[in-house]
Computed example of a mutant assay.
Amino acid sequence: MSVVVPDWTPHAPLQRFCLPWSEAAGVELAVLRLDLIDPLISGNKWFKLSHHLARAQAESAAGVISLGGAHSNHLHALAAAGKRFGFATVGLLRGHAQQTATVDDLLAFGMQLHWLGYAGYRARHAAGFWLPWQAQYPGFYAVPEGGGGLSGALGCMALLPMVREQLAEIGWADYDAWWLAAGTGTTMAGLLLGEAAAHPVHGALAVPADHGVAQQVQGIVQEAGLPVGPYHLHEACRGGFARRDDELLAFMFNAEEQSGLPFEPLYTAKALMALRQQVEAGYFARGSRVVFVHTGGLQGRAAALSSSAPLL
């Protein structure tokens, strides 16, 4: 059976939320709740997948294959979409076979898994990497890690009208900036393309600088050939990808209590903590209105809180 995806356009609510540090600085916050679009196909991952899946359907692909780790939000969303919409999925995973809540879900959703080891996964950018997998799974459409690339960014442009259509409902005429976690930079690039220089976009780096987020963002916008406005990357990884510490967790639990919103420590809590640091430093003028994108990932919250070791 080839890939066929219904015309599904999920909607995320835009909500105002207040925290003591933002109120003290006179900075208004609103959050785009992508965590609420669906119980399983959650967060920004669906939007990064949408154009890839449309291309897979246009090519009459036999299925979809992609890459990620044992806690990958991207693979979780892809496998859930495959289960719901009835197309085959294959996941190429970093490291060696292990059991996690995410891996359990991938298997339950029917995704075929292959563990590449660490050296094998590092070779994913090498020429010819996909050739043996295309031979093993002929006719499968390959999605880049994290749903990246221009197709992933184009899907994320849908977030802009979603916000603009709800501004009046929260009493805003406009906003001054976007703020979101950046893992590959794909969602950030999509916002830049959609904004066409109207508003700046701020990405809180949940990964170290050597992961190449800046280069990926620049590559996507150059490939698109569309005008983009100012954007800024802010350090937020706290020592490495998937690392969390007592200060971060204390901040997250406190922010949840104060705002009534759920977060997870790998992306959303790091992004919010970096926003607090910039707000308290006076980065945004009093009266500024900032849209914070909740990128989801809550299905991995329990695993992310269960150990202080990095989730590799």
Results as ranks from 00 to 15, higher is better:
A119Q: 14
L275P: 15
A54E: 14
A62P: 09
V4Y: 01
R238W: 05
D176R: 00
D105Y: 05
A61D: 08
P39T: 00
A182C: 15
C18V: 14
E257Y: 04
G183E: 04
P262M: 03
E169F: 02
A197F: 04
K270C: 12
W130L: 14
E223M: 01
L226C: 00
G82K: 08
V27M: 06
T186L: 02
F17K: 12
S66Y: 04
D38Q: 06
L180G: 10
V163S: 11
F284R: 05
L36K: 12
A101E: 13
L53T: 11
G139F: 03
R289I: 14
S50W: 00
E280G: 03
G146D: 02
L49S: 08
F87K: 08
L266V: 15
Y267N: 00
A77E: 01
E280K: 02
Y267R: 02
Q222H: 13
W115C: 02
L311D: 09
R238A: 13
A196V: 09
F87S: 09
F87N: 07
H74V: 07
A206T: 08
D174S: 15
L67W: 05
L75S: 08
A309V: 02
L107C: 14
M273V: 00
F129M: 05
H125G: 13
G190M: 05
H71E: 04
C237G: 06
P200R: 03
G219E: 05
C237F: 14
A309G: 03
D176M: 02
V293N: 10
G146Q: 01
Y118I: 10
H294F: 09
R243F: 01
G86H: 10
Q112E: 10
H51D: 00
G282E: 11
A302G: 13
L167I: 09
G149I: 10
A25Q: 13
D105N: 04
V290R: 09
Y118A: 07
A24H: 10
H52C: 00
T268A: 15
P20K: 06
G146S: 06
R244I: 07
E165M: 06
V5N: 02
D176F: 00
K270S: 13
A88W: 02
W21S: 10
L93W: 10
L34A: 07
V27G: 03
A126M: 06
P20E: 03
L106Y: 07
G190Y: 04
L180S: 14
L311K: 07
A309M: 03
L19W: 04
S66P: 15
N44I: 14
T100C: 12
A281K: 10
S72T: 00
G146A: 06
S22I: 07
L261Q: 11
L32D: 11
L305Y: 06
L261V: 10
D7K: 01
L193S: 07
G183I: 01
L298A: 08
L249I: 15
G155I: 08
A127F: 07
T100A: 08
G95R: 01
I170M: 06
L78C: 05
A181N: 03
G229E: 05
W21C: 11
L113V: 01
G152N: 09
A119V: 12
A153Y: 03
H125Q: 14
E280M: 04
G148A: 08
H125A: 13
